[in-house]
Write a protein that binds this DNA or RNA. Structure first.
Lengths: 137, 137
DNA sequence: CGCACCGGTATACTTTAGTAAACCAGTATC
DNA sequence: GATACTGGTTTACTAAAGTATACCGGTGCG
């Protein structure tokens, strides 16, 4: 099995195969809210309104929709307690959802590096031997 | 500085901080085509029409738009050879674009795992058949 | 001449993502 | 009896993403 990341580049056939997986992941995780919900749920199980407060900015409609999608993909589980006062609904990150940690970590790591690069445009990461072309700003 | 990914979960403040970076990365990489273009360019520099053939399915308009965005973010570079016959334009993955390899790798790894899980659902990875609400229908 | 390739752009359209706000039944609180 | 909290749904909208198709000047090929 070819391990991408170790080889310098892939050929076209490998690209197409690899891209299917990458797109699968991105379809599930893409959009503005999915990762935010998952990350928030890493903190522990939460109820609907609690989640809505924590994720900050999300509307009830989006939260509801995203939670459904996340649930059918097995990334979290929804449980209802009908006996308690106003019916408590709890969302819990499924074990399968926790397998996303490496992905979240990679995204977070690159994203924070990138954030530094664009805020302090010195040469902290990608400026060692090569002097790039002085193209347009 | 807490290292996410190593700890089991983060608190709410850490989530918000981490999410900014994750969203930064996702904004740059999200959408249907950006990663596909980058992965295709891992194969080596390519010209516009070549890229359009390799990425398969992308329209000239989208390719043009995505290439521009990728270029202004420093992930690839565009070079024009005006001397040759019908003006050759070459797109090359920038060194900075190669720093995405860990991200691509993580996405690819999880995505292919996930793809197997949904295609061969041998083990009950996520049995979500439970309905514990005997209340209203 | 006629066609295809090159690197795109222009126009028009559909689809999806996301926002904003109101609304619901039930309970508990003031 | 009004208000707020619970877990959402509904409707209506905007903005962004993406698709489809045609078009452009220039060149080389038969």
């Amino acid at each position: 099995m070819p391990l991408p990341g170790s080889s310098p580049h892939l050929n076209t056939k490998e690209c197409n195969s690899a891209m299917r997986s990458v797109r699968d992941a991105l379809d599930l995780l893409g959009g503005k809210w999915k990762l935010a919900i998952i990350v928030s749920l890493l903190d522990g199980p939460k109820r609907f309104k609690q989640l809505q407060r924590d994720v900050s900015g999300i509307t009830a409609k989006m939260l509801s929709k995203e939670l459904k999608e996340l649930e059918v993909n097995g990334l979290l589980s929804r449980s209802v307690q009908a006996d308690v006062a106003p019916v408590a609904v709890t969302y819990t990150l499924a074990p399968y959802g926790e397998t996303l940690l490496p992905v979240i970590d990679a995204l977070h790591h690159w994203g924070s590096q990138h954030r530094m690069n664009i805020m302090h445009p010195q040469e902290p990461v990608a400026a060692k031997t090569e002097v790039s072309a002085p193209v347009a700003a």
